[in-house]
Write a protein that binds this DNA or RNA. Structure first.
Lengths: 157, 157
DNA sequence: CGATCTGACTTCAGAATATGAAGCTAGATG
DNA sequence: CATCTAGCTTCATATTCTGAAGTCAGATCG
């Protein structure tokens, strides 16, 4: 069992594995749009602004990993088509998306603010991503966290 | 002012701007390592496992955007060198990192668990990324959020 | 004082990935 | 049965990444 992070193999790092699924160029932007209700190939293509070849690849990959699923739909006067919807697994990336948006709102927004606001439906206050612990202590800051090797920590080869 | 997301320009989207800074391949993995105490060029290179050319580019970009800063250090018997440390702005990506790790811990970990554990120093409970609102209602789920165009929303051209 | 070592890069050729445009396909519709 | 369209594929070109080799400057060694 490695004693510190530099000696620990990153082969089974869960951040790394997450990024292998959603960390490619465009993937998180597709999920941003999906979380805002976009579902169709052409809407993704035009709104996100990526090439069709890459879009088809990314959607395939997100479906294969269970983050999106295809659902048949039919508009009157058109044939059956498939749209892409977030699964539970996909929606579980919502806190990460809000956390990225929150950072961008603070450090990268236009002076007037962000182009999209996400608020609590009940009270109208803006959302925040915070870190708490299993006993609801928090919000926590990095110095309040303790990091240790986990059960699958293996030494770097 | 656009009425819905599909008609809204993504040019000033804060998620997109965040990903332009940290969404390239390797960037978030470098920040993962930085948050775990890695500071030196060669340690990043060996532990993260990317090429030196790309590492130099990424570090330059992260320093240019104020996420990392270089600090001179000197080990006895060596010349002065520079190490890379997270700034406040860089540490503010911590909730996003924890949120990505949390998703990976749930959906992409080895059966035994993750190779790294992050717990509350005081009570030992694992950390969680949760979404709350400014009045501390929460944790919130996607259906409890309301999304609207923000102050800088512009129509798509 | 010249030779060697080391950490931190830079350069470069070849491989992988993205872009933009054109083409294909299968069910409507006229 | 010819045309239209959303949803892909294919392909040539451009960008980005990889792996290896080379550069540089300030130690230390002999």
């Amino acid at each position: 069992m490695p004693m510190n992070w530099l000696e620990t193999s990153t082969e089974n790092c869960t951040v790394q594995r997450t990024l292998e699924l959603v960390g490619e160029k465009w993937s998180l932007l597709l999920l941003r749009d999906a979380m805002n209700g976009v579902r169709r190939f052409d809407d993704f293509r035009r709104h996100v602004g990526l090439s069709e070849a890459v879009l088809a690849n990314r959607l395939r990959k997100l479906v294969a990993s269970g983050i999106l699923e295809t659902v048949a739909y039919r508009e009157p006067g058109s044939r059956t088509r498939r749209e892409y919807r977030l699964t539970r697994k996909g929606w579980d990336l919502w806190p990460a998306m809000i956390a990225l948006k929150q950072w961008g709102d603070r450090y990268a927004a236009d002076p007037e603010g962000p182009p999209l606001e996400v608020r609590h439906a009940d009270c109208g206050e803006p959302l925040q991503a915070v870190i708490v612990c299993g006993k609801d202590h928090g919000p926590l800051t990095p110095p309040q966290a303790r990091t240790r090797p986990g059960p699958s920590a293996r030494p770097r080869t």
